[in-house]
Amino acid sequence: MLDWLNEVIGEDLIAVYEGHYCTEDAVIWLRQKPRTIGELRSEEIDWLRWMAASTNNPDLLEKLSQDFDSDVRMWVACNPLTSRLVLEKLAEDPIVFVRRGVAQNKSTPPHLLIKLNADPDTQVRILVQTNTTNKRTFQLS
Rank of each mutant, 00 (worst) to 15 (best):
M1C: 06
L2Q: 14
D3K: 14
W4K: 02
W4P: 00
N6Q: 15
E7D: 15
E7I: 08
V8F: 09
V8Y: 09
G10W: 03
D12L: 11
L13W: 08
I14F: 05
I14N: 05
Y17I: 07
G19K: 12
Y21G: 10
Y21A: 15
Y21W: 14
C22N: 13
C22D: 14
T23K: 06
E24R: 15
E24L: 14
A26F: 04
A26G: 08
I28D: 13
P34A: 01
R35H: 13
T36S: 13
L40H: 06
R41G: 04
S42G: 13
S42N: 15
I45L: 12
W47M: 07
W47A: 04
L48G: 00
R49I: 12
W50M: 02
W50P: 00
A52K: 00
A53D: 03
S54G: 03
T55M: 00
N56W: 03
N57P: 08
P58C: 03
D59T: 07
K63Q: 12
D69Q: 07
D69K: 05
S70G: 05
W75Y: 13
N79S: 09
N79P: 06
L81V: 07
T82P: 04
T82R: 05
L87S: 04
K89S: 10
L90G: 05
E92V: 01
D93I: 04
D93N: 09
D93V: 03
I95Q: 10
I95W: 10
V96Y: 00
R99D: 00
G101A: 06
V102L: 11
V102I: 12
A103F: 04
S107V: 02
T108F: 07
P109I: 07
L112F: 03
I114D: 03
L116E: 02
D119M: 01
P120H: 04
D121A: 11
T122Q: 14
V124C: 06
R125C: 05
L127F: 11
N134K: 15
F138H: 08
